[in-house]
Simulated assay, not measured.
Amino acid sequence: MLDKKQLIVPLAIATIVMAGIVGWEINKRMSVNTAITSQPSPGVTKEQNLTSEIAKSQNSIVEKIAKEVTVRVFTESVPGSGAIVFQQSKGRQGNIYSVLTCQHVIADSKKGVYRVLLPDGKIYPARVKSTPKLKGLDLAIIEFDSDTIYRVAKLGKSDRLGTNTSVYAAGFPNHHVVNSAQIEDTSDWGLHAFRVTTGKVGSISPQQLPDGYSLGYTNEVASGMSGGPVFNDRGELIGINGRLKYPVEGIDAFVYADGTKPSIEVFQQMEALSWAIPIATYQQSFNK
């Protein structure tokens, strides 16, 4: 019969062997689990990842274009925004640039004093260009002179837009909400006030609303972004911002050109959208 000392050695050896086997098995399973968890989640396909990357790339491209063609318009009252739409060379005397904005942005400047903040931070004096063909539309053109070469917005096909099409609204909000008790004025923020919001076309009104508005979109647009550009996903200018969501006038803000009003159901859909004047309306006014 074996004594206790004779039993201790075999038991110790067996314990070491078992511990080694268990440890090997654990390491093996951990390796397998690691390999499994390092694989892409079966819930996200390569196509979905690619679509996401394409969307990010498009956003980046459009935002870059927006920064290069959007200007801030300073008036004697409340600032607004605008888009550079034309350049005319004066030879050695530099260039004349045309900025498309909203009529209501410049309307309250009694002395006709205007300034524009450009994407490089420079500020130029500006003047209103007489445009009788824009009568009846909430659109205006102001001009400034500069030796610097600035990008000019490419006009898109706003008449080819469909609902749920992605759009981008750009401009300079006049206020920044810090919290529920604090709102900051952005008049002296310079280019830091610039903003681009994303959304989709929510409505294309079959009849024009007052002042030429007919393009509704889900983007958030703030006071100060009036006159700013609306782009498609190729960075082409397809509209001019001008009307905010939920106007205080209620349904009276949506009276059609023929004097009729939308149904309550349609009105509720319309008031939840921001509104722009399609660039096609601007173009058609010069073809009359």
Rank of each mutant, 00 (worst) to 15 (best):
T281L: 07
Q284F: 01
Y246F: 15
N232A: 02
G216C: 04
I264P: 09
V248I: 08
N232H: 06
V196W: 06
A257Y: 01
L244M: 14
N241H: 05
L244N: 11
T218H: 05
Q284T: 03
Y246I: 14
P206I: 03
S263T: 15
P229A: 04
T198Y: 10
I183N: 06
M225Q: 07
L244R: 14
S214H: 06
Q208R: 00
D233I: 10
A222F: 14
D233C: 04
A257V: 09
D188K: 12
L244T: 10
W189N: 09
R243L: 09
T260H: 14
G235F: 11
K245Q: 15
D211H: 09
Q268Y: 13
G250Y: 10
G212K: 02
L273I: 01
V196Q: 08
K200S: 07
V177G: 12
V177D: 15
T198M: 09
S203P: 00
A253E: 03
E184H: 11
A276D: 09
D185Q: 06
G242Y: 14
S285F: 07
V201P: 01
P247W: 13
Q182K: 11
G242W: 11
E236Q: 15
H176R: 15
V177N: 14
G235S: 08
E265V: 11
P229E: 04
F194Q: 11
R243Q: 13
G242T: 07
T281Y: 05
G228I: 04
V230H: 06
P278F: 02
S187E: 09
G250Q: 05
P278G: 06
F286E: 09
V177L: 15
S214A: 11
L237K: 05
G228R: 02
A253D: 10
G250R: 08
Y282W: 15
F286W: 14
G227Q: 02
N219M: 03
S187T: 08
A257R: 06
P278H: 04
Y256S: 02
T260Y: 07
P210L: 02
F267V: 02
L237Y: 10
K200P: 00
A193Y: 11
R243V: 05
V230S: 05
P278K: 05
T197A: 04
Q208A: 00
R243E: 09
Q283H: 03
